[in-house]
Design a protein around this nucleic acid. Structure first.
Lengths: 69, 69
DNA sequence: CTGTGACTTATAGTCCGTA
DNA sequence: ATACGGACTATAAGTCACA
């Protein structure tokens, strides 16, 4: 499993746990909903900057997004 | 501290622990030495793909590279 | 609400040299 | 052994219309 798949699933899981829509999380993270969709499904290969913004929006340390599953 | 600074320091620490030069780790990771230099010093904003390759070369889970310090 | 494809612009990442 | 810079090329970021 590629790292970007793992991160995508972690993001999706945390987002759902917080009952946020992709649109809401995207706004909070200052990325587009369509881009977030691609990240969650592992189709995009985000940079650390994007990971950091999403982590902040989810109120977790970036470590959580990279966590083994 | 930005995520890319944290990751850079983690990489440098692990690389030194393994007594590898930047050149050696760069070759193993299939990135350029000059680029790795920039990553270690936090000047570059690598993608997950690169993080994954470096982690593999260092024989750690990518999680280790994102670990809080 | 979420995913896809197509697209442009920004920057990730290479390669050269040099110190 | 590492870092810096310039010039390049590959690909990520970011946006949109639509299903």
């Amino acid at each position: 499993m590629r790292l970007q798949d793992r991160v995508g699933l972690n993001i999706q899981e945390l987002r759902r746990a917080r009952k946020l829509s992709q649109e809401e999380l995207a706004d909070l993270s200052e990325v587009h909903q369509t881009y977030l969709s691609g990240v969650e499904s592992g189709k995009r290969n985000p940079s650390l900057l994007v990971i950091e913004r999403i982590a902040k929006a989810l109120r977790v340390d970036p470590e959580e997004l990279v966590r083994r599953r």
